[in-house]
Design a binder for these strands. Structure first.
Lengths: 183, 183
DNA sequence: ACGACCATGTAAAACGTTACATGATTTA
DNA sequence: TAAATCATGTAACGTTTTACATGGTCGT
């Protein structure tokens, strides 16, 4: 399978909700797609330029007030078609690099206390993440009442929450089993 | 935070269990660290060469029979120390690129039937993955009875299984909620 | 004799991150 | 008036993948 840069699809995805500036798209990706995706900043503007060249998005220069330049991008029909085609294709396998789990896997090389600390840190982080997801859910439920967009957003957030809950339980169980382990 | 290539630690981790050839390490990484890590093949041999240069591993040439060259690597005390130091450091945040979730998130752009298909495919894949993990667990329990190494391996596998179960439930719930959704 | 797997490696190209450069506008 | 945020972008560097090159050994 050939590799393919997905940045353009993420950008088109963002623009399928609303016209945005490059800056908006950067923010959108880092905030909204947080539990399952990321793009590096340095790739947004070059990819936008490519998309403009291919006429998948069109650019409008907005001078809101004063000298500040702002470029707002809008998805075109052919951009929308490109997005839809990609969305229909069976997704590539998920890519994970979980350093925490790698370290725990290699735990026999480490003192018990240090493994426990990693697990406790992780548990604390998970708790924070769950709170964050839940607050996003509340926010969406208030601002988007039963519309089609928010339906799929909430599904994705539920995914994140479900995984966090599972990890919470697993962390607790693992801590107990390490503590009960003689050694 | 500076980026750092983790390949050397994964290799040292592999060698902390047993001396291995480059080929063995490749296999080990792709099979054993499957639910939480991956390295690309093209990085193993160059990294091994560096590790030899830094005296973190030592190389022995084994000519088992005939002309076949085989190089077996063994971790040295300083390699072991390097590994332990890294293991003790708080892990970097997990890196995920879940194309499936990204596509579902953007689901309002797609026909209901296509979103359903993605979810069903995913469910089928998850079921297979669970079976695989479970068979690895049984295998470990037979070949490593209560030793310290297998303890942490089993913890990691439990993590994978717990996440899969959570995803199974979430997939089923999501399918139902799409089907019940008028639209 | 064929395919699967063992075994070592390299090179090119694509990808991704970080840091930097520049400056405007808003908010405390 | 300082800090945060809006806003656009590039360059350098490091990482990762893919494809390739080469050949041995084992099972059927």
């Amino acid at each position: 399978m050939k590799r393919e840069n997905k940045t353009k699809y993420v950008i088109l995805g963002a623009l399928s909700y609303a016209p945005m500036s490059g800056y908006d798209i950067r923010k959108w990706i880092s905030q909204v797609t947080l539990p399952f995706w990321s793009e590096s900043d340095g790739q947004i503007y070059p990819t936008l330029a490519e998309l403009v060249k291919g006429q998948f998005v069109k650019r409008e220069i907005v001078n809101s007030l004063g000298k500040r330049i702002k470029k707002v991008y809008q998805i075109t029909p052919s951009g929308y078609q490109l997005l839809k085609e990609w969305l229909g294709v069976t997704p590539c396998p998920t890519w994970v690099r979980n350093e925490f789990l790698l370290k725990l896997f290699l735990g026999k090389n480490l003192a018990k206390q240090e493994n426990i600390k990693h697990l406790q840190d992780r548990l604390a982080e998970i708790n924070k993440t769950i709170e964050k997801y839940k607050s996003v859910v509340s926010h969406i439920k208030i601002t988007h009442q039963n519309d089609k967009e928010s339906f799929y957003w909430l599904l994705s957030l539920n995914y994140g929450i479900a995984h966090c809950h599972a990890e919470q339980v697993w962390c607790t169980d693992s801590l107990n089993s390490i503590l009960n382990d003689k050694g």
